[in-house]
């Protein structure tokens, strides 16, 4: 093949690669590398030999990486591991909610009985009941924290899916059908689904949150 034709072919392949929307097939890279190698004809200089060796090493590296990723069974991450983790976390929220409601039922029964108690005892019971209600706020907070973790897992799921698409079917060893991704809280373009989405940070870690006193200070 004439040098000009080879250059034109390789340029065309590189242009196709540039047009890929983030999902580059490693096979395409290998094909381009092979085109370059095939174009090298005749006696090669020392520099030419080095370039040839580097290109060959690059092709080998890509194939090895693909094989190693396949061994990790990335399809299992989306098919089994992430859904299982999400289910477990959802179950935790459900279990704590159920337990909290059971506590409420018991406490409300105790509180109703205070009407039949001497005032001094009833006051002490009421204070204890109030403390229990305050403490049960944990269910709301843990629920929101777990929801944040589930959202993070969904992001990981998206990235793994993109990786699987980039490396093609040969690393998808499983024949199991893919699960549809969960509903996202953002639009496909990444824009917030609600006007105040960018302000919704959820419960903060203690060193990142401001105190009630700080909030009071903001209110002057």
């Amino acid at each position: 093949m004439a040098v000009a034709a080879v250059k034109e072919k390789i340029a065309s392949q590189l242009q196709d690669l540039q047009k890929a929307d983030g999902s580059i097939d490693p096979e395409e890279i290998v094909a381009i590398v092979e085109s370059i190698v095939d174009s090298i004809e005749g006696d090669m200089s020392a520099d030419g030999l080095k370039v040839y060796a580097d290109i060959e090493a690059l092709a080998l590296y890509i194939n090895t990486a693909r094989a190693e990723i396949a061994d990790l069974r990335p399809d299992d991450i989306n098919d089994e591991h992430l859904p299982a983790a999400t289910d477990e976390l959802t179950a935790i929220v459900g279990a704590t909610e159920q337990a909290t409601n059971t506590i409420f039922e018991a406490v409300e029964t105790i509180e109703a009985l205070t009407e039949k108690m001497p005032d001094e005892v009833a006051d002490q019971i009421s204070q204890a009941v109030t403390s229990i209600f305050e403490a049960c706020g944990f269910q709301d907070i843990t629920g929101q924290r777990i929801t944040k973790v589930v959202t993070a897992l969904q992001k990981v799921e998206e990235k793994v899916e993109a990786l699987l698409n980039a490396f093609g079917d040969d690393i998808k060893r499983s024949d199991r059908p893919k699960k549809e991704p969960e509903k996202r809280t953002t639009t496909p373009s990444g824009a917030p689904a609600r006007p105040d989405e960018d302000l919704l940070n959820g419960p903060q870690m203690p060193d990142e949150a401001i105190s009630q006193d700080d909030i009071d200070a903001l209110f002057g």
């Binding site: 709301d140 907070i141 929101q144 105040d196 302000l199 919704l200 940070n201 959820g202 419960p203 903060q204 990142e208 949150a209 401001i210 009630q212 700080d214 909030i215 903001l218 209110f219």
Partner: peptide, 20 residues
């Protein structure tokens, strides 16, 4: 549970009476 300063300021600017 929204406890960042920006949350409180945004709520105050929107006219909230108090924030817990």
């Amino acid at each position: 549970a929204e406890s960042k300063t920006e949350n409180v300021i945004a709520a105050k600017e929107a006219g909230v009476s108090n924030y817990i």
